[in-house]
Simulated scan of single mutants.
Amino acid sequence: MRNQRWIEVSVGAFMLLGLAALLFLAFKVSGLAQTSERNGFEVQACFGDIGGLKPRSRVTLAGVTVGRVAAINLDHQWFEACVTMQLEDSLVNKLSKDTAAAIQTSGLLGDNYISLTPGIDEAWLAQGDTLKDTQSALILEQLVNQFISNSTRD
């Protein structure tokens, strides 16, 4: 009897440990886990359409994650989405003011993220600067609708 109870407790503990591990992995993969706050600087970029971009989406440079989307707000004057990005401190005095920002998609139906392309200007990006060269997200539904309307005209 005592041996049976020990086995039941062991199996229960193992199941709880497995459930906790799955929960931890789910938070890590989804990007919802609170990561340690890194020092960095914020820059903004305004886009005509951000598609499915969300706060905490990644910001990449040459495919390497160098920051996260901190906030997304609507510019009520121009009706554009203004995105605030938190970039790593290692990029201070390394990215020029004419750096371009484009919203990309991981795969065909994946997450949206911001891809940065360095420019050639001699002035560097600093805290609070705004990127002027931006490219909005490509919306798959718009492309399909455009293809259908073009094919029906023929």
Rank of each mutant, 00 (worst) to 15 (best):
A21S: 15
L22C: 11
L22Q: 14
L22P: 03
L23E: 11
F24S: 10
F24G: 05
F24W: 15
L25A: 13
L25C: 09
L25K: 15
A26Q: 15
F27V: 11
S30D: 15
G31K: 11
L32W: 12
L32D: 12
L32S: 14
L32C: 11
L32V: 15
T35R: 13
T35M: 04
T35C: 00
S36L: 08
E37V: 09
R38Q: 08
R38N: 10
R38V: 03
N39S: 13
N39A: 09
G40Y: 05
G40H: 05
G40I: 07
G40D: 05
G40L: 07
F41Q: 02
F41P: 04
E42F: 04
E42Y: 08
E42V: 10
Q44K: 12
Q44H: 09
A45H: 03
A45E: 00
C46L: 01
C46H: 03
F47H: 06
F47E: 08
F47I: 04
F47C: 02
F47D: 05
D49N: 13
D49E: 12
D49S: 11
I50Q: 08
I50C: 07
G51M: 02
G51Y: 09
G51K: 06
G52H: 04
G52W: 01
G52T: 09
L53Q: 12
K54E: 08
P55Y: 03
P55D: 06
P55N: 06
P55M: 03
R56F: 03
R56I: 00
R56W: 01
S57M: 06
R58Q: 01
T60G: 01
L61R: 10
L61C: 08
L61T: 05
A62D: 04
G63N: 03
T65F: 05
T65G: 04
T65Q: 08
T65L: 01
V66S: 00
V66F: 07
G67L: 02
G67Q: 06
G67K: 04
R68M: 03
R68S: 05
R68E: 05
V69M: 09
V69E: 04
A70Q: 10
A70W: 09
I72W: 10
I72L: 13
